[in-house]
């Protein structure tokens, strides 16, 4: 089986691993690093559950091979907040009941982090458009939109939403 050694930075932690070249970034994060917060919903880039930030931009980690992430900065949901803390968006999702089963939530959060970094106070229709690649089957999106709007309203004029990794999560040795 063809493998390669890659070095990349995940949630602020730089690491080197040998990976089969056909292994997706999603599978690598979940299986090799134990970062199971990145969820795999469709494996074809149609649901957004596996969204992570690659060099700051949201991408579908099921459509990237881990080898392609050589030298990149990855942020997963585990890296959004420090241990036992919640990122403002995570707090808003909690306050507005913006999650039910929680499966789409990590991807939703990372997509929303990206939106808020570009537009600190987005309107509902911009939020809906930006999140249209992240499917949710539980909430009807209503409270997700409210939660992001609330963070936007709270952050208007300030820069409280970070896109960088804060916590490392528990990356497997």
């Amino acid at each position: 089986m063809s493998t390669r050694t890659i070095t990349l930075t995940v949630n602020d932690q730089t690491l080197t691993r040998e990976v089969p070249v056909r292994k997706t970034l999603a599978d690598f994060l979940r299986e090799d690093l134990g970062l199971t917060g990145t969820h795999v919903g469709c494996e074809l880039g149609q649901c957004g559950a596996c969204t992570v930030l690659l060099n700051g931009d949201p991408v579908k980690s099921c459509l990237l091979f881990a080898v392609q992430a050589e030298g990149s900065q990855i942020v997963t949901v585990e890296g959004l907040a420090g241990k036992d803390a919640l990122h403002p968006l995570q707090q808003a999702f909690h306050d507005h009941h913006a999650l039910q089963c929680g499966f789409c939530t990590p991807g939703m959060l990372l997509a929303a982090v990206d939106l808020l970094s570009r537009n600190p106070a987005p309107k509902a229709d911009e939020i809906r458009r930006h999140l249209s690649g992240n499917l949710c089957r539980c909430t009807g999106y209503v409270n997700i939109v409210k939660a992001i709007e609330a963070v936007g309203a709270g952050a208007a004029g300030t820069d409280t939403v970070s896109t960088g990794a804060v916590g490392a999560g528990n990356i497997q040795k």
Binding site: G45, T51, D57, P58, V59, K60, L64, A111, G133, N134
Partner: peptide, 9 residues
């Protein structure tokens, strides 16, 4: 084209 994450790649 697709959605944000698709357009980023």
């Amino acid at each position: 084209i697709g959605h944000t994450a698709i357009r980023n790649r």
